[in-house]
Computed example of a mutant assay.
Amino acid sequence: MQVIGGKWKPMIIYNLLSGTKRFNELQRLSGNPSARVLTLQLRELEDDKIIKRHVFDQIPPRVEYSLTTKGKSLNNILEMMAIWGKEQR
């Protein structure tokens, strides 16, 4: 729970399950956390080897985020959490 706990991390992981995303797209899809909060959450997920960050050597800089194999393995857990949440409504 420490790795995926919090308000934004489950949303970030869920949005990356469908494929690679750029920062602004992740921010929009995840409910518009501030840029600072999203950056911190992405760094923590990267440190925990849940996501990988790919920086393209171009101007302007382009960065894409995607799930690692470890990150993809969280799919079932997120699905179960979503089912539980719907049942509690």
Rank of each mutant, 00 (worst) to 15 (best):
L26G: 04
I13M: 04
W8S: 13
V63C: 03
W8L: 15
N76I: 00
Y65M: 07
R53A: 05
L17H: 03
A82I: 15
L74R: 04
N24R: 12
I51D: 07
E44Q: 14
G71S: 07
R62D: 05
K72C: 05
M80S: 07
K9N: 08
L17C: 03
K52N: 06
V55K: 10
E25C: 01
S73Q: 10
S34N: 07
K7P: 03
M11W: 06
I59M: 10
S73K: 06
K9P: 13
Q58H: 12
A82G: 14
Y14G: 06
R22A: 08
L38Q: 06
K52C: 10
R53W: 05
N75K: 11
G5T: 09
K49R: 06
K70H: 02
E44F: 14
R22N: 10
E64D: 09
Y65A: 02
Y65K: 00
N76R: 06
G71H: 05
G6K: 13
F56R: 12
S73L: 06
L45S: 04
T68S: 15
G31M: 10
E46N: 11
K9M: 11
R62M: 07
N15F: 00
M80D: 06
I12M: 14
D47F: 10
T69Q: 12
V63F: 01
Q58F: 08
G71W: 04
I59R: 09
Y65N: 02
R22V: 03
I59Y: 07
R43E: 12
T69L: 12
E64F: 00
S18W: 04
M11Y: 11
S73Y: 00
R62C: 04
L67C: 05
E44D: 15
F56K: 15
A35E: 14
K7E: 12
I77S: 11
P60C: 08
S73A: 14
I77Q: 13
G71E: 10
M81N: 12
D47W: 14
